[in-house]
Design a binder for these strands. Structure first.
Lengths: 172, 172
DNA sequence: CCCGATTTGTTTAATATTCAAGAAGGGGCT
DNA sequence: AGCCCCTTCTTGAATATTAAACAAATCGGG
């Protein structure tokens, strides 16, 4: 009951969320859920792929020579290597990405954006930007935008500690 | 290329994101991805269910007589009825929820939190609150907290318009 | 050089979600 | 009643993700 304000029977009384914190947390969860659903739907309709897959193509198009090592791509996208393997397999089947061996490390693989991948990205980008703007930026004041950006940077940083044994998705 | 700053070949030049907007959007996506992964992992480990399922139990424990109609529960959780049907089936198999017919509408079903469901929720709640605090609230100033809450409320509202034909998950 | 530990990436199975379709009841209408 | 349309919820198949295990290559000492 992450939201409970009342007492409980635990040994060390947990610091339950205040009403204000609950309201913020639920607003965050609701917005995050609806937003991801919205963008998934838009991209599935207009580009034939979910939002995460689209994000992978974006990472690739921005990378030097349009290619990235699998682990680096997983790190940029904040996902596991397993998930990435499956995703790249699907994108490869679509002809939007191909794999290449890494010359310097025989274990390594590059994911490379193909011309067809570049095409589908170019076609989908304007509609996606519109969707993001309409749902997100167009509704926020500059102050809210700024505060939200800083807050999210802090949270993202906090969830990827530099520690040795940190449980990060791309190292699992 | 939702992040592109450069020109493109589209008919109406899309309003690409500014650098600042790109930074905010990526920070948001990174934080949201890492946060969901973090909470899913914590709850899977400590309660044997993903974060969304936990959220369903929370909705039920707060509802009168610990029960909600399927559509209402889907609406509260911002998910599709199909997804909810599958989720409740799983929670039912665990003995944490049971279904009941609605007397006034023979199509209707209630999802009801069982005592076992209440137990698992009570045991998991403190650890979950800790995780949310540590990843989220403990890192934000009161000002950031406030701004973020307002921003997310606006975004969530914007994504569930009152319009007749709106494409909302629980009406699909 | 050799060995054990680590890194890299994939694979299989289990689980979860989406998508399209459909069964069944409700409600308004003639 | 009969008809049509809408709402409610579920189902089965396709897709996506997680979890656990693994092969192969690299790395760091001895």
């Amino acid at each position: 009951m992450e939201y409970m304000t009342t007492a409980s029977a635990s040994a060390e009384e947990p610091r339950w969320l205040t009403d204000e914190e609950q309201r913020t947390w639920r607003a965050y969860m609701n917005a995050a859920t609806l937003l991801e659903d919205h963008l998934d739907r838009q991209l599935q309709r207009d580009a034939g792929m979910p939002h995460v897959y689209y994000g992978l193509l974006v990472q690739l198009v921005e990378a030097p020579r349009r290619r990235l090592r699998m682990t680096e791509l997983a790190m940029n996208a904040k996902i596991t290597r397993s998930r990435l393997s499956h995703a790249i397999a699907r994108l490869e089947k679509n002809g939007w990405v191909r794999r290449e061996d890494c010359p310097s490390d025989k274990r390594g693989q590059f994911a490379v954006l193909t011309d067809a991948g570049y095409e589908v990205l170019s076609k989908a980008a304007p509609g996606h930007v519109d969707a993001v703007r309409q749902a997100f930026f167009d509704r926020l004041t500059p102050e809210q935008h700024k505060a939200l950006g800083e807050a999210m940077r802090i949270i993202a940083e906090g969830l990827q500690p530099k520690d040795a044994g940190a449980d990060l998705p791309w190292l699992r």
